[in-house]
Design a binder for these strands. Structure first.
Lengths: 351, 351
DNA sequence: GTATAACATCGAACCGGTTCGAATTGAACT
DNA sequence: AGTTCAATTCGAACCGGTTCGATGTTATAC
């Protein structure tokens, strides 16, 4: 006598109502009398009835899941940037009664065979894609009529909602900070300028200089690196400081990884940080805390990025229509030693 | 003319076979002729047919998901120990065609109302529970006839499979290391001795001392802390070094958090590490890399713990019978400065 | 040549919900 | 009293698979 778990028919039987009425109550529909609603809820709790997800899913063609897509290399990298984003999504999704299915795809989208299984199986109601990705993957999702939200990446040619870091504001904060310390000779190190976030940081940097009436000198603006890793930062710095036309007294790096590479080069060249050159990064990754001197940087609220994307996606799913939004997540300046700040201070800007 | 996605009936129609035969092919069953199998597979790929998860789930009463349960405080803690375990599970589960549904529960299991939704909805085929948890939650899962695997926690009174850190081997490695450096006066700092892992580490420590013919002195063995946080480590160390009957020259702490607390106390007391006292921790958490001196410790392969649990759980699901296993994951000694090792060396023990 | 077994395929019930048009009821309106 | 209409409730089809007993076919044994 295995105690079969109750189904909606058991609830119908117990209340003497029809199955469809029970379903109406379950889904909080109108057009059910208060009296009936009460009776049904009572029976449900007495029977300890709970609808099975797969039955509901089959009938209503929804899964109750949202998909989270990450490129393989982002998933595997040691720095937990996207891990934090994912956990932010996970946490927020749960608040909205969704589970998150995580998957990775390869960067290039070469083979068609590793299309995320949850797409093939109709097992998600919407998709979050984090980080730079081949547009092919975005199209793949859109072609299945699934709502999509991108995080930290934009594809202007695709009609997709995005959640972006406020890169421009961050770059402005960085320049303001350096300018307030008296710097008027400020260089830039960047790479992968095709990346929307990087492009915005560069633009913000330029705008910041202009606002402070500081000249942006080409020989101090090294943005030709193909990637934004530590190595690229080191190389770019070598290039910058080999210039003979005088040196900047401060550097803004487009992200912390490049800033750390820059720091390595400056050490090799016996250029003291922050005495000879002040340095500011972007992202506030863990590693920035463990270099000497510790990195002044723009803090990105990674969990918040994921949480916002989850909220947007849930809205899109509920709306049923493919509206496009662009949400910007605020950033903070975190002053540490690499810019000459004597102590750690956090300055918040914009809610 | 919305291009409705094909169903199994479309495949049946196209091949002139029955729906049930298609299903047999889909599930790689015997008793299908090669010829038929080939025809079906051809039709499937031509139609780009893929079975929907919820339909399959309803019919076969399986979900294709596994649940991952974590206590709220473990989920929220800054140290990414359980995050890494989770990602290990996630990665391995995907290899076996499972998705992982994550949820948190409150520590005490007070209210019955926050039973993980995936349990109520029959939305998982098995459960992984990570870290110490109220036995009530284990019973909750077992009572639903779901396979369960615990990570880093045991409940001898419950018949449950577990994946444990090799705590004993780790403690032995730590003692061996200290002994090989010439230490013969070794103290212990621990807390929460009801925790199975902590108990094993203490036992391993005792066994290690015995093996080296070293006396275990009660006044150097501080294990009465209720928890194993940094504060507890600091308190325990204060207690130990206030003793007047001579001091140990080395300390083994039951985990890195306590070791870090111990380090703080030693600094206050102007006891130099490693010169006056050598220190070894356990877990290899991130923070251990950022204290001065860096912590010699026992490295735990966190992702591996999660991956092993996923494999065990998949086996249990496939078997359909509730066999109980206990798997131990190897650990490594990582020598850094806190024990007097001049450079970072990793010594591996046991595969 | 017939009984038997093994194999391949089929038909239909079933999993447990949702949904929508139809039926019922009672109040409001002519 | 007859008609209209909104509010409830119901019945049945449907979602897209799995599964199992039944059926037809062919090979094997006697």
């Amino acid at each position: 006598m295995a105690t079969r778990r109750p189904t909606i028919r058991d609830v119908a039987k117990k209340t003497g109502l029809s199955v469809s009425t029970i379903s109406l109550v379950l889904n909080e529909q109108e057009n059910v009398s208060d009296e009936t609603r009460r009776r049904v809820k009572k029976a449900i709790s007495e029977l300890k009835y709970h609808p099975r997800r797969s039955a509901r899913g089959l009938a209503s063609q929804t899964s109750g899941n949202i998909g989270f897509i990450l490129t393989e290399d982002h998933f595997l990298q040691a720095e937990p940037f996207y891990t934090k984003v994912f956990l932010g999504t996970e946490f927020e999704a749960r608040r909205h009664q969704y589970y998150v299915l995580l998957t990775t795809v390869d960067k290039g989208r070469k083979s068609n065979r590793d299309i995320p299984r949850f797409l093939l199986e109709h097992n998600v109601d919407g998709i979050i894609i984090a980080g730079r990705i081949s547009p092919g993957w975005i199209d793949e999702c859109l072609s299945r009529d699934l709502p999509v939200v991108l995080i930290d990446f934009e594809e202007p040619s695709r009609r997709v909602s995005t959640v972006m870091i406020d890169n421009r504001a961050g770059a402005l904060l960085a320049v303001d900070h350096l300018a307030s310390l008296g710097h008027a000779r400020i260089g830039l190190i960047a790479g992968d300028i095709g990346h929307p976030s990087i492009a915005e940081r560069i633009a913000g940097f330029a705008a910041g200089l202009k606002a402070h009436g500081i000249e942006m000198r080409p020989e101090w603006t090294i943005t030709d690196q193909p990637e934004t890793g530590i190595e690229n930062g080191a190389t770019a710095a070598r290039k910058l400081f080999s210039s003979v036309n005088g040196r900047p007294t401060a550097i803004f790096a487009a992200n912390d990884a490049m800033a750390i590479g820059c720091l390595q080069t400056l050490k090799e060249l016996k250029i003291a940080v922050p005495r000879d050159v002040a340095l500011v990064g972007f992202d506030d990754i863990e590693a920035g805390l463990h270099v000497e001197p510790r990195l002044t940087t723009i803090h990105v609220h990674k969990e918040e990025l994921g949480a916002i994307a989850a909220r947007r996606l849930v809205e899109l799913i509920a709306a049923g229509s493919p509206s496009v939004t662009r949400t910007t997540a605020a950033v903070d300046l975190v002053v540490r030693e690499s810019s000459g700040g004597p102590i750690t201070v956090t300055v918040s800007k914009r809610a």
